[in-house]
Structure formats: structure tokens, C-alpha cells
Amino acid sequence: MSSTVAAPSKTAPAGGAKGQPSGDNRYKMLEATMKRHQYAADSLIEVLHTAQELFGFLEVDLLLHIAHSLRVPPSRVYGVATFYHFFSLKPKGDHTVVICMGTACYVKGAAQVVSAIEALGGIKAGETTPDGKVSLMTARCIGACGIAPAVVLDGNITGKQTPAAVVDHVKGWLGNGS
């Protein structure tokens, strides 16, 4: 289960990150971040944040590139990237729906919202619909307990949600894919 609030970048690496890093502007931006941290090994998580913002998700070749640049063992980079739920090693859908599963949201029925979207998309929390349109995620309390249950639709926090309302919204995404 991955949790995030920020909307993912919709641009997955074209043809993967395997291509010529030098020809890809995003690599330059990543390079700038690493340089700003003086290629310090302990900046790994910061660099992973940047990489995910730039590329949408963390492909293995991208992780290898980071490992080599920061001189961190590959297994450690992979270990860190998979320890934190924020990082995704798989591409996310065009749209994301993040359902807060904090206590306040839970007691106000967030689980039912999750079930409704799981049923609608035929996916489990943490998965993306086969057509790549919608990713369903749950979050560990986004701190919007006052307006529980909270659902983050493409990065916008919405409060006091109901299963029906979220289903309607997601149906729109699934319908035309835009």
C-alpha cells in the first residue's frame, strides 16, 4: 500500500529510463538536485523524492543511476525505495484516488469508500486499473481528521466524502480517461 498526497507526474519515462540520460532533461534536473546535496549518500531519500516527482515512479534503471551517482550500494537504494510507502516502483495511473485510512476517517466509514472503489475499478488498494487510468491508494492519516472521511482526488483534498460521491467522481475518470 502506497500512500501519497501529491498528484503524480503524468509523464512516465518515455521508453523507460534506459535511454541516454544526457538526452533527457529530467536527468539534468535530477543531476542538479544531487549536485545541490553534493552527491552525499545521506541525501538518498531527498533524491528519490525528486526523482519520483520528475519521472512519476522509480524505475530500476533510474534507481541504479542514483545508486551509482551517490555511490550507494544498489541493494541499499532498493531497500530504501521499498521501505517507504511514498515511493512507487511501478507507474501510477493517469488519475489517483487516495483514501485516508486514519482513525477518524476509519470510524466515519473510509473502509466503505475503499471497498466501493475497489469494486468499481476491479482493483485492490495499491493497484492501478488495467487500462492505466486510475490508481487507488490508501493513506495513513493525511491529517484532515476534522473533515473525515477525507479523500484525495488527483492531489485535491476533499472532505466528508461518501462512497457514492467518490464512485461518481472516479466513474468520470474511467469513462473518458481524461
Binding site: P73, S75, R76, Y78, G79, T82, F83
Partner: peptide, 9 residues
Amino acid sequence: AHTWDFQGR
């Protein structure tokens, strides 16, 4: 060598 590490949690 640091070949091994843990993934996931």
C-alpha cells in the same frame, strides 16, 4: 560488498 540488504518492511 554490501550485496545484501532488505527490501520492503
